[in-house]
Design a protein around this nucleic acid. Sequence first.
DNA 1: AGCCCGGCTGACGGAACCTTGACGCCGCTG
DNA 2: CAGCGGCGTCAAGGTTCCGTCAGCCGGGCT
Lengths: 226, 226
Amino acid sequence: MTRVLVVDDEPQIVRTLRINLTARGYEVATALSGEEALRVAASFRPEVVILDLGLPDIDGVTVIDGLRGWTGAPIIVLSARSDSGDKVAALDAGADDYVTKPFGMDELLARLRAAVRRASAVPAGEEAVVETAAFTVDLAAKKVRRGGAEVHLTPTEWGILELLVRNRGKLVGQKQLLREVWGPAYASETHYLRVYLAQLRRKLEPHPARPAHLVTEPGMGYRFEV
Amino acid sequence: MTRVLVVDDEPQIVRTLRINLTARGYEVATALSGEEALRVAASFRPEVVILDLGLPDIDGVTVIDGLRGWTGAPIIVLSARSDSGDKVAALDAGADDYVTKPFGMDELLARLRAAVRRASAVPAGEEAVVETAAFTVDLAAKKVRRGGAEVHLTPTEWGILELLVRNRGKLVGQKQLLREVWGPAYASETHYLRVYLAQLRRKLEPHPARPAHLVTEPGMGYRFEV
DNA sequence: AGCCCGGCTGACGGAACCTTGACGCCGCTG
DNA sequence: CAGCGGCGTCAAGGTTCCGTCAGCCGGGCT
């Protein structure tokens, strides 16, 4: 059950891909914009991404950058334009393959298989380490170090930190945090967040009272700053 | 100095590629036929292969097979035909990318960079014997030694230890352990883990009550530390 | 058949963790 | 200025999770 994220602003293409991929045993998530793609990717954790470059909100290369910040999953770019300039830019940004529309479904599927094969041929090829002035987070090993010594986190603490780090620099709403860490039924238990954010700060921040990396956005949510 | 092998039967294309690649700092070897390609590859040990499918002597897919038998280096296929059938066959045979002629040099270079980046992202260093302060694990021979004497492990014990050692440093979730050692149906039998981890620790750890290498992460899984 | 080894199960003490409530602080608003 | 809501802090249950032991069962070997 390989997880594939399909990003395209044309609902028709998204639908076609979803049907074809699902029929072949892939687990599919979709997004219609770049912003949505980055949000969905953080929780869905795709093993492959199929990404249309012509998105309405964000530039395609920016989306690639956002993904490459924390995942090594192969990215297959779709594009209507066959400009070689676009191809070069996308590939150099970190994309793995480039297919011009219109494309044959069997070709896309073959390229998908090739991409998955490459990725899985390499066990543990993930270099997902995020470093701040005070501590380092290893997303693959689920480890946190602070000044040489390893810091132990509970499952809940790690769940929060992981979600924030995967969306580093971006604001994560409290409802989203609660939904993804505790489950949909806990979407209004904002008190949990206060307790656990305090614990995380006590373990990670040099001055827990004046946090530099685990920042509160009053009334909205939290943000991880590097 | 990345080693690139260029395989094409048209001397003109070979020449163009050699000039362009050399100018960009690649180390280039060339072959004009499939048979020559396999021979040259064996001694040149390319890190990337650029392969034309329309060779006079051997079928392109056969060449891919021959290379894939002993190397994991990325293969970029060139072809005059844009048949989707050819693409699918080549990609499924183990090729990494497919470019149709005529192609832009900058696009090919970008795809080359992407291929090399992917390949080098993988350390590829499989160490078959792992050593800790207390004991030694030989993954290839399936043997464990502790202070000169060999320790006998049951199949289940070995299954757990092997999985943990292959992911050394990383946290392995209990569900993953159960799935890979006992099978998908046992994904919630966490009690098994407790029993077998205790056994492993009794056999391997100097102080089984305070494990130094087979570490528990409560609520999440286990971790092998060196 | 009898033995032995490895895998499974149940019980229990203890540790780690999550939840919950109380309290004080701060900024905003009426 | 008082009230209120959002936030941070702390500590005390209560629950889940873990380690350990001991015993049962079934299959392979002699």
